[in-house]
């Protein structure tokens, strides 16, 4: 899978939004995905095709419904490429700290 397709797919805010929506509720139809977005079904379908071509979305047929699933594997491959095993634990500590601070802040 070409990494260029992944970066190009992620460059668009609407496509990132679609991934965010699937992250919360995975396995949705085009109709369900179009609902919360201020876009035509055709526009959403086009974004989904690009996400699928980049392997960031995987589709599965269930009867007559085509369900869309978030596939984070290519993003993890990018992460592995630039973040080695030594940085990992330090970054994790920073991430945990950020989460902890934001949790308190939200209360």
């Amino acid at each position: 899978m070409e990494k260029n397709k992944v970066f190009r797919a992620l460059a668009d805010p609407s496509r990132r939004k679609l991934l965010d929506i699937l992250r919360v509720d995975n396995g949705q139809t085009l109709g369900e995905l179009s609902e919360p977005l201020d876009m035509t079904r055709q526009a959403v379908a086009k974004h989904l095709r690009l996400l699928e071509a980049a392997n960031l979305v995987v589709t599965v047929w269930r009867g007559r419904e085509k369900l869309h699933y978030l596939n984070p594997v290519p993003i993890h491959e990018i992460y592995e490429r630039w973040i080695g095993k030594f940085e990992r634990s330090r970054l994790q500590a920073l991430y945990d700290l950020k989460e902890e601070l934001e949790k308190d802040y939200e209360k």
């Binding site: 899978m1 392997n55 995987v58 596939n71 984070p72 594997v73």
Partner: peptide, 13 residues
Amino acid sequence: MKNKSQFVYVTYI
């Protein structure tokens, strides 16, 4: 069907 969750992962090797 919707009460159990499902995840799908794909990689090309």
